[in-house]
Simulated assay, not measured.
Amino acid sequence: MKKKLYTTLLTSLMMASAVSAQAADDLLHVKGKLANFGDSAVVAYGTFGGETKQTNVVLKDGTFDFTLPMKEVSYVQMATPATMRDQDRTRVLVVGVPGETLELTGDMKTRYDTGGSKFYQQYHEVNLMLENSSKEMQEYSMGIQKRLDAGENRKQVMKEYREKAAEIEEKAQQRMLDFVKQHPDYEASAVVISFLEDVKKMEQAATLLTPEVQNGRMKSYYSFFIDRAKQRAEAEEKASKAQATGVQAPDFTLNDLAGKPLALSSLRGKYVVLDFWGSWCIWCIRGIPKMKEYYNKYRGQFEILGIDCRDSDEKWRAAVKKHDLPWLHVYNPENSKVLSDYAIQGFPTKIIVGPDGKIVKTIVGEDPVFYTILDELFGKK
């Protein structure tokens, strides 16, 4: 009787242990201490390309300890409530792996580091490598900005930057590939793939991984980024054709601030800058002062047509009023084909259209080259 009772008890304990182990495999344990973070955090997490979930966490003197239900490799963002309201930028963004323990330590005003279980020890090595790989570019970019601020010739400086930056970036990419070569058995090496710039390099890095890592739990992670890079490459090829110099700019008609239809073709005979922007786009907003400066500098020689993207009508109108934007504006609704017709890939995108209705130049991002082009077009007049 005692033997039977002992056997039953042992079996129950083994079953409970198995259930506990299974449960632990579906959890990410996050703990640590971060100075200057605040007393609470909003934690957002979810699979890459999938649904986002959210929970709130209380910090005591910067210390936290919580678990997240997780069955697949996911992203995890831990941010202050102010950051979630776009009033701050205090956040931690990491790759979450179920069954692991992530330890975060440091000071949000200086730096924080990752540690914990085996995966996150490897992840820390990856982060240090990525940080070192990006240093040369960061330092070079800061030097370029100082030269521009000091009044050096913008055209010459930016020409040098484009040539030198490509060389520096290629070196950084090679360092990343070298890390994967040296650590093919690290699961965290799969994270490097998401930082590589083109599909060929990403696929090369994937083949460098051991079969165990290639086909293990990180497969969904790196496959997502490779698939997305392929889609981006296809979209960029379409954009290069749609936005190429000499291509006839597709005509469109959208409603202006007065609610009246405004057609691009109605501006034929003058230079027009199509400014694809949104109130949510940080770089779009940061570029407004310079845009205003050049709009006034060459007033009457060209027109700007702001094309709002991914805003509600109310937010669009509020942004135009808040930033006191003096040029033409139209609202681009969700069912519009304008973004597709122009193959817009990023924001802001500025497309200069000539008096003949053909594209002169396309500039993606808040790039100083845009203003150099305006100087070349109108500075001699």
Rank of each mutant, 00 (worst) to 15 (best):
Y140W: 13
A205I: 06
K164A: 11
T105N: 07
H124V: 12
V192P: 00
M158Y: 12
A188I: 13
V192H: 00
E203A: 09
E103V: 12
R154Q: 14
G143P: 15
Y112L: 04
S134M: 09
K135S: 14
D178R: 08
I168G: 03
P184W: 00
S134F: 02
Y161S: 03
R154Y: 01
K159Q: 13
D107F: 07
G116F: 01
E163N: 08
N127P: 10
A166F: 15
P211I: 08
L209Q: 02
Q174T: 15
Y140M: 07
K118Y: 00
Q138D: 11
G116I: 08
T210P: 12
L196V: 07
N153R: 09
D149I: 15
R111D: 13
M176N: 00
E187T: 10
D149M: 14
T207N: 15
L104R: 04
E163M: 10
G106P: 00
E187H: 08
P211G: 10
V192W: 00
N127K: 07
M137N: 09
E197Y: 13
Q145I: 05
T110W: 02
I144G: 03
Y120K: 06
M142R: 11
T207C: 11
S141H: 12
L208N: 02
A190V: 14
Q138Y: 06
K135N: 02
K181S: 09
K146Y: 06
Q122M: 10
E212W: 04
Y140F: 09
K201V: 04
Q145C: 07
L196H: 00
Q156Y: 08
S189W: 00
H124K: 14
Y186W: 07
D185E: 13
Q182M: 12
K118I: 04
E170P: 07
F179M: 06
G115R: 03
A166S: 13
L208F: 11
E187Y: 06
E152K: 11
V192D: 01
I168M: 03
K135H: 09
Q182D: 15
L196R: 04
I193D: 02
P211N: 12
D149Q: 13
L177E: 09
Q173N: 12
E139D: 10
R154S: 04
Y112E: 01
G106K: 00
E131T: 15
A172H: 03
Y161K: 09
V192R: 00
G106M: 01
T110G: 12
V180P: 02
Q122F: 06
A205E: 03
M176P: 01
P184A: 00
E160Y: 06
V157N: 04
K118L: 03
E163A: 13
G115W: 02
Q121H: 10
Q156A: 14
D149L: 14
E170H: 03
T110A: 08
V192C: 05
E169Y: 09
K201N: 10
D107C: 06
K171T: 11
Q173G: 05
L196N: 03
R154V: 08
L177F: 05
G143H: 12
K118S: 11
Q121V: 13
N127V: 05
S134G: 14
I193F: 01
E212M: 05
E125Q: 12
D198Q: 07
H124P: 11
F179R: 00
Y120L: 04
E103N: 03
E170V: 06
T210C: 09
Y112M: 07
N127D: 13
E163C: 15
M129N: 05
